[in-house]
Structure formats: C-alpha cells, structure tokens
C-alpha cells in the first residue's frame, strides 16, 4: 500500500508554468481544433493546431483548468510540435506521467489526460 505523506506535490517549475503557461492562447490560421471537457471537475480545454504534411507545425491551448491540466497542456504542446500525427495517436497515460515529472495523484489522472484527449480529438 502506498504510504500517505504530506510533502510538496508540485515542484517550483510546475507552479511557475501554471502561473505563466506556455503555448496558451489562440491561433488564427489553425486547421485543426477541438474542445474537451471533464464534467467531474468542470475543466474545459480548447486546442488549435496547424498541421502541414501530416506534421504539427504549431499549436496552442485555451480554457480554464487546474494546475495539472494547465501544466500538462503547456508541456504536451511543446512536445508535439514537429511530431507526426500518427505518432501523437500512440501517446498514452505513461507518456503524460513522464512528461509531467512530478507525482500525479491517482484520483486526478483524468485532469492530466484532458489535454491529450483534446489533441487526439482535434486530429481525428
């Protein structure tokens, strides 16, 4: 059984990224877009993506969310820039955990997966 401890769950860089998220905003000339909700926590995220030759040229996200969904969205968008659509489709929970770096409480994994779901929905 996992032992409960009351240590800091979010490292400084996570908090900084939450306060000033990168890749936040909108893209005028995007050709792919989707919005995804998490009805449990009320989070909503919209992603806009520019794709050329089946590759991601640029992407941005907007909406309101918690630390997890905001920070993962910032990091994930950075990661997918330059990636091929078919490779993005293979990204999963483990990739998100690795990307976030800090521990994700098992009760909140859905928040962390919301940006990936939105991106996959947009590229469908």
């Amino acid at each position: 059984m996992e032992k409960l401890n009351y240590k800091d769950i979010y490292p400084k860089h996570v908090i900084e990224l939450y306060k000033n998220p990168s890749n936040f905003g909108s893209l005028e000339n995007s050709n792919f877009e989707a919005t995804e909700h998490n009805s449990i926590c009320g989070d909503e995220i919209t992603v806009q993506i520019i794709v050329k030759d089946r590759k991601i040229i640029n992407a941005k996200f907007s909406g309101s969310g918690c630390i997890l969904s905001t920070v993962v969205a910032s990091l994930l968008i950075e990661k997918i820039k330059g990636m091929k659509i078919k490779d993005i489709k293979n990204l999963d929970k483990d990739d998100i955990k690795k990307l976030f770096g800090a521990r994700i409480n098992s009760t909140r994994i859905k928040c962390a997966l919301l940006p990936l779901e939105a991106i996959k929905k947009a590229l469908k």
Binding site: Y6, D8, I9, I40, C41, G42, S64, I67, N105, R108
Partner: peptide, 23 residues
C-alpha cells in the same frame, strides 16, 4: 479566487488537511 478546488484540496493535503473538492 480562481484557484481550482481540486488544486486547493491537493495543496491542503500537503499540510495533512482533508477536505472535499468538486461538485
């Protein structure tokens, strides 16, 4: 403020405080 309740709850947990968050 605009801080998500799930974040408030997770951060309170750092101090050993158990609260409910969400709908």
């Amino acid at each position: 403020g605009k801080i998500h309740p799930h974040d408030v709850s997770s951060l309170l947990n750092e101090k050993g405080i158990a609260v409910r968050a969400g709908h």
